[in-house]
Amino acid sequence: MAQKYVIIGGSAGSFQVVTQILSALPANYDLPIFLCLHRLKHIRTGFIEALSIKSMLPIVEPDDKEHIRSGTIYLAPANYHMYIELGNTIALSTEPSINHSRPSIDLSFISASYSYKEKLIGIILSGANKDGAQGLKAVKESGGIAVVQSPDECQVKTMTMAAIKATQVDHILNTQQIIDFLKKLN
């Protein structure tokens, strides 16, 4: 099977879901995963440590131009947009916030969809604004798979509902189903 890539977007409120997902993935999970989560701009440290506690996979906040490796989780750094470039590298940017967000989920998803096309799986989790909707639409339009966390499960439904409204999503799944879906891709 050709290499696939996973990109996940959510706001700070989806932290627990992300932790659940990451802790359920085995140490031999091969797909690179990009995480774009809204977070406090001025806090440089702590977030990655908190996420790493239960993950068996390495989580990094990439430097600019970092090469993308299998089985690694890339967390968009605070106060930077994170692009996924052609040639399998990360590019960072300090361009203005989009939807009051830097990192912007839309920008990460759009760049990844451009680079990976049908090899990309985009997942939108719980969140409090509409960021991610245009990004998931780009994933779908480029031939990738669009997944949204079931709004019924989300404390704040704005982000998931906006994504569902913006594009014809392939799957609406609860957390456990997202985990099963990701495991099957490995």
Partner: peptide, 8 residues
Amino acid sequence: YSFTFYKR
């Protein structure tokens, strides 16, 4: 210039 940025 870096690709995604220039394109954007």
